[in-house]
Amino acid sequence: MRIGKEKVSRIRLAPVLLAFSLAAGSVFLVPSAYALSELHKIPGQAAGEAPPQGNAQGQNQPQGTTPGVPMADPLVNSQNGQGVDKTPGAQDASKPVEVIYDISKAPEPVRKMRQQIVEAAASGDLERLRPLIGTGSDQTQVTVGEATDDPISTLKDLSGDPDGNEILAIMLDIMSTGFVHVGQGTAEDMYVWPYFAEKDLKSLTPPERVELLRIVTAGDLADMQEFGGYNFYRLGITPDGKWKFFTAGD
């Protein structure tokens, strides 16, 4: 399932957690490793993906979707919990967040971009993401702060392996979860994966915890709960199909 996740988990969580601890007046240390993702069901060759039909209550996966990436048959279908103001356009933390699993409820440009990202990531070739990332002011944000000159090179550097396969696996894991629609009617209108970015992690149900633990380790989750929210990778797509960001942190 998850090869050496405790050994190679959380290297990129450490700076965020350390900064939070210093602000609170006490320093705590976290292991210097990064969480690996599961690719045991993901083929090396991309396959076509069709928008799912029906609801998220255990219906079969639509024919033509990429194997190993749940579409209309998720582990969890919950709309409980509170939002966490962690992403652009994040919902009011006092309001319940609606978790969406049916990708057909997203606009067609969002569905198309998601499918292209999934297919590129499943191929194992990081360069297949380049046409989707864009350039200039439309370039996908892959680091917090200023844009990088070469986002593909940056993603490769962030990966725990020289070919960037780990970062692609993380991307697939994230996009296999439910998602949320935040910032409706504002300039930050966005569809965000995973939905944990907008959830109170201390209120997760057991099935939701299992789904999150497909992405991070139990140690990561404990650190996130202490930190106050999800701070691993998240991905955002605008309603018009622009891939806005793929970043880690709060």
Rank of each mutant, 00 (worst) to 15 (best):
M1A: 12
R2T: 14
I3P: 15
K5C: 06
I11H: 11
L13H: 15
L17R: 08
L17Y: 12
L18P: 01
L22P: 04
A24G: 09
G25C: 08
G25Q: 08
F28P: 07
L29I: 13
S32V: 14
A33E: 11
A46K: 07
A47V: 14
A47S: 15
E49G: 10
P51H: 02
P51E: 01
P51V: 12
P52S: 07
P52D: 03
Q53Y: 10
A56W: 07
Q57L: 13
Q59S: 12
Q59C: 11
Q59G: 15
N60C: 04
P62V: 15
Q63V: 13
T65N: 14
T65M: 09
N77A: 11
S78N: 13
Q79T: 12
G83P: 08
D85M: 13
K86V: 06
P88A: 05
P96I: 03
P96V: 05
E98H: 11
V99Y: 01
I100G: 01
D102Y: 03
I103N: 07
K105S: 13
A106Y: 06
A106C: 09
V110F: 10
R111P: 03
M113R: 11
R114E: 00
Q115P: 02
Q116L: 14
S123I: 02
S123G: 01
R128D: 00
I133G: 02
Q139M: 13
Q139H: 02
V142C: 02
V142R: 01
V144R: 14
E146C: 02
P151S: 08
I152P: 00
T154P: 04
L155Q: 05
L155R: 04
P162E: 14
S176K: 13
T177Q: 14
F179I: 06
F179E: 01
H181T: 03
G183Q: 01
G185F: 01
G185M: 01
T186L: 06
D189C: 04
M190Y: 00
W193P: 01
Y195M: 11
Y195F: 15
D200A: 11
L201W: 05
P207I: 03
L213I: 08
I215D: 02
I215C: 02
A218E: 15
L221F: 13
L221V: 09
A222H: 04
M224Q: 15
M224E: 09
G228W: 00
F232A: 13
G236S: 04
I237R: 02
F245E: 08
